[in-house]
Computed example of a mutant assay.
Amino acid sequence: MSIAPRPALPADYPFALKLYIEAIKPFASTWIEWVDEDQKALFASLWRPDDTWIITLNGEDVGWVEFRRTGDEIFLKQLFISSEHQRRGVGSRVMRLLLEERHGAAKSMALFVLKNNPALGFYERHGFGVVQETPTRFVMRRETGDAA
């Protein structure tokens, strides 16, 4: 299994949008009235290819991750793996790569996750703990020096 991240390009937008909608819509619909056109417009305003890696598995695009350094912390904005490639270690490999790549650059990594998203367990298995919550999301954090 060869997992390799590559920098995102503007041409990756349709792939990223499709995966985002497939992954988030079932969970976000619990908290908000999901209107496809509104969500597509929101996604378009937030898409940052410069902060994004496309995740490839044996040369095939299977996911994407967006992250940004803010001071001494990496903020993991998005991590999506296509449903047919989930629970196969792809996300774990990406998490390890992020933590190894960013270890010297930041002291911690933080993220938001919807409370009803099963990814919560994935993040807990990778050492993230809940540090704050809103009515719909958990804020999670872990030190980058910890084992992934």
Rank of each mutant, 00 (worst) to 15 (best):
D38L: 15
V130N: 03
W34E: 11
D12A: 08
W31V: 11
A23N: 05
G104K: 09
D146C: 06
P135G: 11
V62G: 12
E73Y: 08
G127L: 11
D61G: 11
D72V: 06
I3M: 06
Q132P: 10
L19H: 09
I54H: 08
S92Q: 09
R6W: 14
A106K: 05
R68A: 15
N58A: 15
A11N: 09
V131W: 02
A28K: 09
I54Y: 10
S45I: 02
N117W: 06
V130E: 10
K40Q: 06
E133F: 03
I74M: 09
F43E: 09
D61N: 12
A11F: 11
D12G: 10
E101A: 07
R93L: 05
E37G: 13
P26Q: 08
A41L: 08
F43Q: 09
S92C: 11
G127H: 02
K18S: 14
V62T: 14
I54T: 00
V62D: 02
E60N: 12
V35W: 08
P14A: 09
V139N: 04
T134D: 15
E101F: 05
F75C: 12
P135A: 15
D51I: 01
L99T: 05
F67M: 06
S108D: 00
G104D: 07
Q132R: 12
S29T: 08
F27T: 06
Y20C: 03
H103G: 07
S82Q: 15
G121N: 11
F80N: 08
I81Q: 01
S82A: 15
G63I: 07
R93Y: 00
S29V: 00
R96H: 00
Q39S: 12
E101Q: 10
M1I: 09
L99H: 07
